[in-house]
Structures are given as structure tokens and as C-alpha cells.
């Protein structure tokens, strides 16, 4: 059935299949450039967009890892919020800046590991497990912060990571590029990536082939949580305060980016380059629509529609729509 589809497929179809996602990104950029050339199509705005999507990209590449093993981590949003809160609290209490950022990373690693351990050990749905973890983390956030935004007595150095620019380029954009390159390499060219994709492709086969499925599930969830935590800390650093729900909005957006990213791969699997394109599409849309003063609710409708479309496209791309 797969073969016949291939043979009858026209050239245009094949091109769309292979490059459809990138074409969509270019189309969106062109559209806004034509509508508002003065404000959208400028170098300043493009640099701005890279900074705007940098946080989304970083949380999304962690989610990409968990999705590559066919699991979900719904706790990334609250993990990010918790990361920001933890870093800010440590900074307020006079902890050396390096530790303010390192300690939350270690804690998030442990939390992610627990997620993975529960999912792998008890073979339960990651969907529900991480939803539960998300609620637990929200409770912890409340306990730590008392429910209030943390902004008083935060040292100035706390904001360095989130606000520094190297020339015209924001540090955040550079961090994003570094993270993308590292994760792209990890997933494409290391044993870790190979094993994760094997587990995502068929867990039983992976196990029989000698891959320690449980261990790699733990690793995927742990790294995902760390990326969420880093994202949350950078959000706090950028705005100079830690909000109890700062990361929540990133959760849905990140999975949207991953799903759009799947359509950029020939196999229809989550991949880092695709996720970057997915986040870029979402970022450009948000930037352009805001510029055109389209109301937020319209932006939501458009974004939601794109997510649904991407999921369908991903399924069709995989060729296993049963």
C-alpha cells in the first residue's frame, strides 16, 4: 500500500512531502513581508524573532527527545515555572550566581528521572503520570513562593543571561543555536539518539535487540526536564522576576512545535531540526499577527488550527494511518 502511494505520487506531492514544512515557513515570512514590509521585513525584527523563539525552541527540543521514544511529558510547563522560581529564590538568598542556575538543573534532572522511572518501571501511560507530576510541581511552586511573583531583592547579575547582547545579537539567540546544534548532534549522530529512535519505533524490538529500554526512557525524561528547567530560569532571568505560572504557556506551544517538526522529517518522527522550524513558524506567526494588530483570540485560533493540521500531516507522512 505504501509502494503504490509512492508510485502514483506526482512530483509536486513528493516535493511537498519532503520540503512542505520549510515551504510553509517561507510562505509565512513572505506573506508578512508583503503585508507589512516596513516593520516586519527588517533585520532588527528578524533578530527579535530569534530571541522571541529562543525559549520556545529550548523547551521544545527537550520535548522532542521524550516524543522520540513515543512518550509525552506534560509536566514541562510547570517544570519550567519551578525552574524559574527555584533560581530566583536561590538568588534572593545570596547564593553564588553559578549555583543559582546549577542547583535547579540537578533537581530537575532528578524529577525527570522519576517521571521516566515510573513510566518505564510500571509501564503506565506517560500522559497521566506526567500530568500528575505537573500538578505536584504546581503545589511545590506554591509552597516555595507562597503564590506570589518573586521580584524583590533579586541581584542584577541574575538578569545577565537573559538580557545580554553580543553586538546586536541577544545571548538568548546564541544559547538557542548552541542547544539546537548539540541536540541535533545527539539525536542524529550518537548512540543515544539511535537508541531513542529505536525505542520509539518499536519498544519490543529495541528490547530484544539488547537496548536497555528502561534506562533510556529515564534519560529522555531527565533531559527533557532539564531543558524545561533551563528554559524557565532563562525566562526569569530575562524579565528579572519569577512568576509562578511563567512556564505554563510554553507547554502547548512546545508540543505544537514538535508536531509541526515531525512533518519536516521523511519518516514523520520528532527531530531537532524540524522542531526548530516548527518553533520558527509559530514565532513568525505570533510576531507578524501581533504587528498586524490581530487580536490574541484570533492568534489562538490560527495556532490551534496549525497544530491540528500538523498532526494529520504527520500521520499521513508516516504512512501508517490505519
Amino acid at each position: 500500500m505504501d509502494k503504490s502511494k509512492k508510485n502514483t505520487g506526482t512530483n509536486i506531492k513528493q516535493i511537498l512531502h519532503a520540503y512542505g514544512t520549510i515551504i510553509a515557513l517561507i510562505a509565512v515570512i513572505l506573506l508578512f513581508s508583503i503585508i507589512s514590509p516596513g516593520s516586519f521585513f527588517t533585520l532588527t525584527n528578524f533578530i527579535n524573532i530569534t530571541r522571541q523563539i529562543s525559549l520556545l525552541v529550548m523547551i521544545s527540543i527537550g520535548a522532542t527527545m521524550v516524543m522520540s521514544i513515543n512518550e509525552f511529558d506534560l509536566s514541562v510547563g510547570s517544570m519550567a515555572s519551578l525552574g524559574g522560581i527555584m533560581a530566583a529564590l536561590l538568588a534572593v538568598n545570596g547564593m553564588p550566581m553559578i549555583l543559582c542556575f546549577l542547583i535547579p538543573i540537578v533537581i530537575s534532572f532528578v524529577i525527570g528521572w522519576i517521571n521516566g522511572w515510573i513510566v518505564a518501571k510500571f509501564r503506565v501511560l506517560s500522559f497521566i503520570t506526567t500530568l500528575g507530576m505537573s500538578t505536584v510541581l504546581s503545589g511545590v511552586i506554591y509552597r516555595l513562593s507562597g503564590g506570589a511573583t518573586i521580584f524583590e531583592n533579586i541581584p542584577k547579575s541574575f538578569s545577565w543571561l537573559g538580557t545580554t547582547r553580543l553586538g546586536r545579537i541577544p545571548l538568548l539567540s546564541i544559547l538557542m543555536i548552541v542547544a539546537v546544534v548539540i541536540f541535533w548532534y545527539l539525536m542524529r549522530h550518537t548512540a543515544l539518539g539511535r537508541k531513542l529512535y529505536a525505542i520509539g519505533g518499536n519498544e519490543e524490538t529495541a528490547k530484544i535487540s539488547g537496548i536497555n529500554v528502561k534506562k533510556y526512557k529515564n534519560i529522555a525524561f531527565a533531559i527533557c526536564a532539564v531543558m524545561a528547567c533551563i528554559t524557565g530560569m532563562l525566562i526569569a532571568s530575562r524579565v528579572g522576576s519569577a512568576n509562578t505560572t511563567a512556564g505554563d504557556g510554553y507547554f502547548l506551544q512546545s508540543y505544537a512545535a514538535v508536531f509541526i517538526g515531525c512533518t519536516a522529517s521523511r519518516k514523520g518522527v520528532p527531530n531537532v531540526a524540524g522542531t526548530l522550524i516548527g518553533a520558527a513558524i509559530l514565532g513568525v506567526l505570533a510576531n507578524g499577527l501581533t504587528m498586524l494588530q490581530i487580536p490574541t483570540y484570533m492568534q489562538d485560533i490560527i495556532t490551534g488550527g496549525i497544530i491540528i493540521f500538523a498532526v494529520i500531516a504527520q500521520k499521513l507522512g508516516r504512512g501508517d494511518s490505519k
Binding site: R194, Y197, A198, G201, E204, T205, I208, G210, D320
Partner: peptide, 15 residues
């Protein structure tokens, strides 16, 4: 249990 259909011949052989 023996193959991963979505992966390539190479990736399957190397599992």
C-alpha cells in the same frame, strides 16, 4: 518484536 518498520535497513541491522 524483530524489526522496526519505520527505520531503514541500515538502522535495523545495527540495532
Amino acid at each position: 518484536k524483530a524489526i522496526i518498520e519505520g527505520l531503514s535497513v541500515k538502522e535495523n541491522i545495527l540495532l
